[in-house]
């Protein structure tokens, strides 16, 4: 009996620890995305000058990062618990969440295939990317106190 309790407790601990890693990993991905998007937004806001090479580099890095998103690996059942702002809706509506991830992949892929050559084009591109961020965060992220 004692062994069983120990085994269950160990398993529970291991699971929590595993989710902590999953959560940390997906937060790291989001931070990377924010860094690349930041490069683009700063140009849109006029804080840095438009630079086509830097646009392509940021879009490429963003797209590489986004194409790697694997919902099953990064959002296993139970990983809504812990230090995360992932909404339970991710697991209540997995198809809806996957559709948002696919949309994100399509938007960044399209941007890399046709990177902005001037500021106006960049504004449109950043607008499309930002809207994709917002639509997914509207439904699938929850702020916690």
């Amino acid at each position: 009996m004692r062994k069983l309790v120990f085994a269950v407790a160990a398993l529970a601990l291991a699971t929590t620890a595993a989710f902590a890693d999953v959560i940390a990993d997906r937060q790291a991905v989001m931070k990377e995305n924010a860094k690349d998007v930041g490069t683009l937004v700063k140009m849109v806001k006029g804080e840095t000058p438009f630079d086509a090479a830097a646009v392509l580099a940021a879009l490429t890095a963003l797209n590489n990062n986004v194409q790697k998103i694997d919902v099953a690996a990064s959002f296993p059942a139970g990983s809504d618990k812990g230090d995360t702002t992932a909404s339970p809706k991710i697991w209540e509506d997995p198809a809806g969440f996957q559709a948002q991830v696919d949309k994100f992949k399509a938007v960044t892929a399209a941007a890399v295939a046709n990177p902005a050559q001037d500021l106006d084009a960049l504004k449109a591109q950043v607008g499309a990317i930002g809207q994709t961020c917002g639509t997914c965060h509207e439904a699938f992220r929850v702020k916690k106190g």
């Binding site: 950043v126 930002g130 965060h137």
Partner: peptide, 23 residues
Amino acid sequence: ASYLETGFTPEFDSVGGTMVEVQ
């Protein structure tokens, strides 16, 4: 003001939740 216009925070996180519609 920039967040309300673009939906990006100064850390380049995006607007979320019901604020998306407001933004």
